Computed example of a mutant assay.
Amino acid sequence: MHDDLAAAITREGIAQVVPLGGGLWQVSNVKRVGAVRLDGWEVRVEPKVPIRNLFHLLARGKSWGDWWPDDLKLDDSSDFSTVIAEAFLSHAARALRGGVLHGYVEQREAAQTIRGRILMAEQIRRRTGVLLPVELQWDDFTADIAVNQLLRSATRRLIGAGRLRDRVRSGLLRLDLALAEASLLTRGARLPEVVWDRRSERYRSAVALAQLVLTNGSLDHRVGETTAKGFLLTLSKVFEEFVEAEVARAAAPWGGRIVAQERASLDVEGRIRIAPDLVWRDSSGPRAVFDAKYKAEKPSGFPNADVFQMIVYCIRLGLDTGHLIYAAGNEVPARYEIRNAGVTVVCHALRLDAPPAAISAQVDQIISGAAMSE
């Protein structure tokens, strides 16, 4: 590894890389997994979480359900970015088995011949006294609709994202050709919203993967002299979304509702703002508070920052117990009874290498404990 590559890995937020001397480097604080090409070097970061379990976290966190087909090979020897490409290709091909979906899209233009409806107000405003061109509006039955735009843009992003098996690359190229009528989305622009109906339902899982590829997982840019291109997934975000979905599921039988990122002021003047990850509320008020932390925050001088933060949440919400939920291996279970505050902070550690049902059972136990401790 050379200095520029180490700096690029750190700058992209993949991990912290520092030289140890003698050609050795220390890699720590890994935050993202996947594959990325940095100025000709291919960097691959494999997750500690088994690949099948990582897909389970994604599916639950993004409300996909058990979306993958039985014929998709999810073994622990596969790297994540390769599996993403294969999964996307499998679902997109399945969505297009019934043909490329078409829909009606409103079009407007100034034309020499009349079709559709004349926009009289626009004609008068823009072309008073001029007969041609005419301001027109009509509905075009086209494949250039949101679902196809998402699929084609994700296809292009994956083709350029890194090393792919020949079978997958060929499949993606065929997919791009089949969707040739769909426009490519502008990088960095907000993704189009999809209105689901009976006709578009077959696209749902493919679109979910496309949105993943096009948002928090994708890299394709230049910073200074470094070009970054690939697919990286931020583990902390995946974990937080998973915990939110699982806490809401586990709390449902107990009643109330889970509020995410509830904003409140800590001081009377409203100058200090707080936003706990999850607040469990019912008709009587706050019932419990949870913060999801993939890794413990330990800034210099504040090794217990997460605990301090949770104490503040409990005091503000009038609760005597707060819950920190970590990934096992990054923190250990603990219980802190805070002097002179009447607050207890409970740290939980989810074993993410367990079978999906066992992971859900761990969350059930956390919620049950929170409900019974009221």
Rank of each mutant, 00 (worst) to 15 (best):
N216F: 02
S205A: 15
K293G: 01
T227H: 10
F231K: 06
L209Y: 10
D277M: 01
A264D: 07
S205I: 08
G224Q: 00
Q211W: 02
D267V: 11
V259W: 03
A288S: 14
L266V: 14
G285K: 10
T234Y: 01
R263N: 06
A206C: 10
A228E: 10
I274S: 01
G256R: 12
Y203M: 11
P276A: 07
G270S: 10
Y203P: 12
A275T: 07
T226H: 03
S284F: 05
R257A: 14
Y294S: 09
T227V: 14
R287I: 04
P276D: 07
K237Q: 13
A228H: 04
E244A: 14
I258N: 06
T226G: 04
E262F: 01
L233Q: 05
A292W: 00
R273Y: 02
V195R: 15
E201L: 15
D282R: 09
S236W: 04
A245P: 11
R202T: 13
D282N: 15
W254A: 15
R199D: 13
V268L: 15
L209A: 10
L233G: 04
F239Y: 12
L235T: 07
W196F: 07
A292C: 05
A248I: 00
S284C: 04
E262G: 12
P276K: 05
G285T: 10
F231R: 08
D197F: 04
T215P: 04
D220M: 04
A245N: 06
R204Y: 07
G256V: 05
R199G: 12
R249K: 14
A275M: 09
Q211R: 15
V195K: 15
I272F: 13
D267G: 10
W196T: 04
K293F: 00
A275I: 01
Y203I: 11
R287W: 02
A288Q: 11
E193R: 14
A250C: 13
T227Q: 12
E244H: 07
G230V: 02
L266P: 06
L212E: 09
F290Y: 03
P253K: 13
H221I: 05
E241H: 12
V207G: 08
D282K: 09
P253E: 11
L179V: 08
R273M: 11
V243W: 00
